[in-house]
Design a protein around this nucleic acid. Structure first.
Lengths: 255, 255
DNA sequence: ACACATAATATGTCGGAGTAAATAGGGAGA
DNA sequence: TCTCCCTATTTACTCCGACATATTATGTGT
């Protein structure tokens, strides 16, 4: 096995070293800083990031590093640069909010309650339909992954990172069983938000309800190949999550 | 009004000048080339883009331009670079397929039939739910935009770009009426794909069915505030589109 | 099998030349 | 005198190539 996988840093790599920071590269760090600043509203749409040179000096980095960071932000639709005019923050509807990295920036600070709600609403739309498709298309390998994830959830509970990872695995397995690339990509984006909110809920209060039985119902329906039952079971699951999130966010987290 | 808006090029700017090309910047052009090459399968996941310097020389550009292009691709999850190891194409599930630019690259060459199907399947999931929400939350301004778009569709038909733009406007108006940011961003991505496929269908054969009455039914239900009827009407609309697309893609376009 | 040295390669830095565009200024016409 | 248009300057992004650094794959020796 001479061919080492690339870019598995955060998953299996050496967790001791670079677990700290935003981005391991310099321009990555710059992009993270500017990205969070934009997402948090420090720079509003229409604002201008004055001067390549000025910014590079202020951040004590070379112009190249700053430029590459700007390229990243441009690629994600956050800013646009034009000669003489400067680099401006684009209107919000141009932002690539489903980009996992942008999502991370959105949740780095104080996330917008309304936006979180919209994400969970989207999830409540997509996941039941995904469960329906999964019930029709899953094979034995899919079911095994779901079963294992379920077992891991039971063991670790959602209070631990391992438990949340198992939860993600379960939902990802369902998405994977749909055999739909677009759905899978979407799930990767939403998953990050859900995970964040899950630990947010942990901070605010104990889980008001044991989520395991609901997950089991979804699994049983998918295993049985009952599309409608799977959709319905997933429906109650995501509706509960949406409700929990709403109540958890209206009252600020106890400091 | 001294403050000119930035980056309105494709919408209202001077359409005479830069309507031609992939990207107006050099690194944008490089990114476009590499992006299409990756999406078309010329570079498969795991392949290595050998050598920063070698590539820069081959493309006759400076390393900076090449580097900035790589930053863009990295930001979209297509590639990852590590010292000594080179820049490798990431596995497909890491790609940001919902990014509008990536979507454009995917459709620049011969788009993957399976992927197009997955996009339309996603659309068939999302849009009916969006219509349901729109019926509950729309206001008079939303309805006016939909009505206007409908009139424009009637006038221009889907064979013209103006007609397709009206179609997009209609669907975007529905998404906007959901008051859901995540849905709107998603629609922006899907819209590009739908538009592309619409003109694809034009090339292959005449539209087998007049889409106007179906759209009118959706509008009426939303205007009436009947959520279930809106969802159902949209359902038949997107199901037809899915079906049309499937049949249009199985047989290659007549050259 | 393990540890170390080497070499290859990407990353970060720098300053300068080129270029596009917005603003300001001047000239012509009403 | 006022308005409009054209030109010129200035400003900021864009591109370039070279240098320095850090990291790590690979080979070598024990």
């Amino acid at each position: 096995m001479t061919e080492a996988e690339i870019a598995n840093d955060d998953a299996q790599g050496k967790p001791a070293k670079e677990t700290r920071g935003p981005g391991r590269r310099l321009h990555g760090a710059i992009a993270h800083k500017l990205g969070t600043d934009i997402l948090s509203g420090k720079y509003a749409p229409g604002d201008i990031l004055s001067g390549e040179v000025a910014f590079a000096e202020e951040l004590k980095v070379s112009r190249s590093a700053y430029r590459e960071a700007i390229q990243v932000l441009t690629a994600k639709g956050l800013v646009a640069s034009r000669p003489k005019a400067g680099t401006r923050v684009l209107p919000r509807d141009r932002w690539n909010l489903l980009d996992p990295e942008v999502l991370g920036w959105a949740f780095a600070g104080e996330p917008d309650v309304e936006f979180v709600r919209s994400l969970f609403e989207l999830r409540a739309i997509v996941e039941p339909a995904a469960a329906r498709l999964a019930a029709q298309r899953r094979d034995k390998a899919d079911l095994k992954i779901m079963k294992d994830a379920l077992a891991a959830m039971r063991q670790h509970t959602l209070t631990t990172e391992a438990g949340r990872a198992a939860d993600r695995d379960f939902h990802n397995a369902i998405l994977h069983a749909t055999r739909n690339d677009a759905l899978m990509v979407l799930s990767a984006s939403i998953g990050a938000a859900v995970n964040w909110t899950t630990q947010f809920k942990q901070r605010s209060r104990a889980l008001p309800r044991n989520p395991i039985p609901d997950h089991v119902r979804v699994y049983d329906a998918i295993a049985a190949g009952d599309a409608e039952a799977a959709a319905e079971a997933m429906n109650v699951l995501v509706d509960l999550a949406l409700e929990d999130t709403r109540s958890a966010m209206v009252e600020p987290v106890a400091e």
